[in-house]
């Protein structure tokens, strides 16, 4: 059971021609800059933008083939969490969540029961009578999620689910969203311009740029082997997953990384490859994080060189071609990596 889509559409100056496949139980993130066509792609899957060509198939049923077949949005087994949530301002939280059930012909009392259960699931059972304008951003997002999933759609689409939140609310909301997404058993597809959201929420990335898919794969694959400068810039970051211990992060290899604010529980540390320095001798200096390793591979990307280091702290370093010559780096060269603790961003997952 899966979503198989090839979407061809033109909206304004956007020329979208992108193919996406998502399997059941998998979360795929469409990642790209603003104007890449992410939202249009999502709207096409929802039936809000008709295809010019291509085909959208969900669980083997054709929803749109750009010609003879077009299933209207209300006929598709989908749920959408919109960018600014679009909760109906004149309806209460409960009525918002019950809206989809009512539209599917379920009686008021039964719809309210199911909606209450859906709200309990996202921990908002005590807000049922509130109006959307009384909610915080994080609460509104959870209501939107409850509304989109209440009638148990096969396909859940999320458009920039965290973009409308301020920075302080993002971390916890991201963690909650990840937990709630895991309980939705259908096909999950989200759109984001934030690589961190994609890393935290998705199993697989689809990178969209100017209406075209330029790369797909797991975050680790894509960030290790970015196919273009643009992708390298976007996702070519070092992601270290581990367990937080106050100001340390314990990696699966047992290595400890100094990270201020690592907290407790599972966390993800992000370090830009530009922040990684390479040394032939063990360095002595202010950087708190120093580790030994060896060069695994070297990739040249125009004016910079990406060096993959294997070791207890696997890292990618971005250096200039001149630095590479000076250090005389090649596969297998033993090196020391260092980076400052202050160059690390950490967030819980």
């Amino acid at each position: 059971m899966s979503l198989v889509a090839h979407v061809v559409a033109h909206v304004g100056s956007l020329d979208l021609d992108a193919a996406v496949e998502v399997d059941e139980g998998e979360t795929v993130a469409i990642l790209g800059p603003n104007g890449a066509g992410k939202t249009t792609l999502l709207r096409a899957l929802a039936g809000l933008v008709p295809l010019e060509a291509g085909r959208v198939t969900l669980d083997g049923v054709v929803l749109d083939d750009g010609a003879r077949v077009f299933v209207a949005p209300e006929g598709r087994p989908i749920g959408v969490v919109f960018q600014d949530y679009l909760l109906f301002p004149h309806l209460s939280v409960l009525e918002n969540v019950a809206f989809g059930l009512r539209s599917h012909g379920i009686r008021r009392a039964a719809a309210r029961n199911t909606a209450t259960i859906a709200l309990e699931r996202v921990g908002l059972a005590d807000l049922v009578d509130m109006k959307p304008r009384e909610l915080s951003g994080g609460q509104a997002q959870r209501v939107a999620l409850a509304r989109a999933t209440a009638s148990e759609p096969r396909l859940l689409l999320l458009d920039e689910p965290l973009a409308a939140l301020d920075q302080s609310a993002r971390g916890t909301t991201r963690r909650d969203l990840r937990a709630h997404l895991a309980t939705f058993s259908g096909i999950r597809l989200l759109v984001t311009h934030d690589p961190l959201d994609a890393a935290a929420l998705a199993d697989r990335l689809v990178i969209l740029e100017q209406g075209r898919v330029i790369q797909t794969g797991s975050f680790a694959d894509v960030s290790a082997h970015p196919r273009s400068n643009y992708v390298a810039e976007l996702v070519g970051v070092n992601l270290l997953r581990g367990l937080g211990h106050g100001d340390h992060l314990e990696l699966p290899s047992g290595a400890m990384v100094v990270v201020p604010g690592a907290g407790s529980g599972e966390a993800l540390a992000v370090i830009h490859p530009r922040s990684i320095a390479l040394h032939i001798q063990p360095p002595a200096g202010s950087p708190r994080n120093v580790a030994a390793g060896s060069v695994e591979s070297i990739e040249s990307l125009g004016d910079r060189v990406r060096v993959r280091i294997a070791g207890s702290v696997p890292l990618i370093a971005e250096i200039t071609p001149a630095a590479r010559r000076d250090l005389d780096l090649g596969a297998g060269t033993p090196v020391w990596t260092s980076f400052k603790a202050t160059d690390v961003t950490v967030f819980p997952v």
């Binding site: 709207r43 929802a46 039936g47 809000l48 209207a72 949005p73 209300e74 006929g75 598709r76 989908i78 749920g79 959408v80 919109f82 679009l86 109906f88 301002p89 004149h90 309806l91 809206f99 989809g100 539209s103 599917h104 509304r147 989109a148 009638s151």
Partner: peptide, 29 residues
């Protein structure tokens, strides 16, 4: 009015007449 509310209603399974009655009219009240 923000027509995306009507889009949201459509993705929730509402037919055009239901959208007009339950979403559009209240919003333009």
């Amino acid at each position: 009015m923000d027509r995306r509310y009507e889009d949201a209603a459509a993705t929730l399974g509402a037919r055009p007449m239901t959208i007009a009655r339950r979403v559009t009219l209240p919003l333009i009240a």
